[in-house]
Simulated assay, not measured.
Amino acid sequence: MTTSYPSIAIIGIGSVTVTIIHALYQNKIPFRILCQNQNRFQTLYSHPIRFQGPTGQIVTIDLKNHLTMIHDNKESYDYIFVGCKNQNLEDYLKDTKPFLNANGKWILIQNGIPESNFDSYKDKILGGVVGWNTQTLPDGTYFQSNVGSLILGNVTKTKPDPIWYQLLPPHIPVVLTDQLEGYRWHKLAINSIINGLAASKQLSLGELFLNKKFREEALETLTEIKTVMSQKKITEQVVPGSFPIQKLGSGLGSLPTWIRHLILIFLGLKYYRIRTSMVQDLDHGRKTEIDYINGEVIKMANRLGIPVPKNEWIVSTIKKREENKKN
């Protein structure tokens, strides 16, 4: 019996979507890449992608037969992965809306809480919380440094179609959840330090977490977010391979301080050279997504009347760095 797979498209080719493309490609699942830029189309058509997974094996992915310029697309899809920065998300949804099937859904894999900005589309959105880190190496190879899950959840607090268990594993483990908000806030808290705090210092994770003062700042940042989550009555859901914010942040349920420092030291040693996406944005003079990471924390804290000075400092420091890069 032949399995009937949903129709899948991807718009926006970057480190996260390439990791998903690798899993679909290896599993021989049909997919289509919608290109907006003719030069990007030609590059992808002419040059296969090199992808290196956590095992070290390098795979060459020829996308020639998967590419369509978006203005030439005549198909409609059950799912469209949207791979872009939060600040471009509204435009990407508008551009791809004509290509969604009647019951189709966008899959938002951005950091932060992207679903919260598109309430009118809530029945058309799947949230995708990414648990891996993939970077582009100097030679152009996409390098996935850790095994990580894709957590999928409907905004309507129901679990997605179990077909996803057949589409991405074993290359990407899948978790289907009806508790998307709990995973989103857990990942938001982690990103507030590995992206936000690291970018405020413009350091690799090793340089950040092997410094005692910076570890203290990280724990302070997490404590503020833990307080916001508690006030908002969010039940934390821990991304596989990660560590609970409830135990890392100070207060009720926290681990002893020395153990919390030890956990951050371990992360620093394990990912010593990793410069996360926001750090790389500053390295290359690009605008960061800080408004959608620590900025989201500030927005919610202001609504609740909770002070979050460390998160505010991170946001203001990164905005100053962005301005300095511009001038």
Rank of each mutant, 00 (worst) to 15 (best):
G253K: 04
R215V: 02
E236C: 02
E207W: 10
Q231M: 11
A218N: 04
L252H: 14
K213E: 11
E224Y: 00
T235C: 09
G206E: 00
G249S: 11
T227A: 15
G206T: 00
N191M: 11
N191A: 13
S250Y: 15
K201L: 10
S192Q: 09
L248C: 14
G241M: 09
F243H: 12
T227H: 11
E224H: 00
S254E: 15
T221G: 04
Q246V: 15
A199I: 06
F209L: 05
T223D: 03
F209D: 01
P240T: 02
Q231P: 00
V228D: 00
F214S: 09
F209P: 01
K233V: 03
L203F: 12
L203Q: 11
G196Y: 13
P244I: 14
A189D: 02
A189C: 13
E224S: 00
S200V: 05
R215M: 11
L252V: 13
I194S: 04
I193W: 13
L203P: 00
L222H: 06
I194M: 12
L197Y: 03
I234T: 09
L205I: 10
F243E: 08
K201S: 07
Q237N: 11
K226S: 01
G251Q: 02
M229F: 06
K232M: 07
T235N: 11
N191E: 08
T257R: 15
L203N: 03
H261A: 06
R215Y: 01
S200I: 03
G251T: 09
L219H: 00
V239E: 03
M229H: 08
S254M: 14
S254R: 04
I194R: 01
E207V: 05
G249M: 06
E224C: 00
L210T: 14
G249A: 12
S200T: 05
E216R: 02
R215T: 02
E220Y: 10
W258D: 06
H261Y: 15
I193P: 03
I259C: 08
E217V: 00
E220W: 09
T223E: 03
V228N: 02
W258K: 05
E216D: 14
Q246A: 12
W258N: 05
L210F: 05
V238G: 12
S230M: 09
V228C: 03
E217W: 03
K213F: 04
V239Q: 10
M229T: 08
L222V: 14
G253D: 14
N195P: 08
V228L: 06
F243C: 10
L208I: 06
I225W: 03
N195Q: 14
I193S: 07
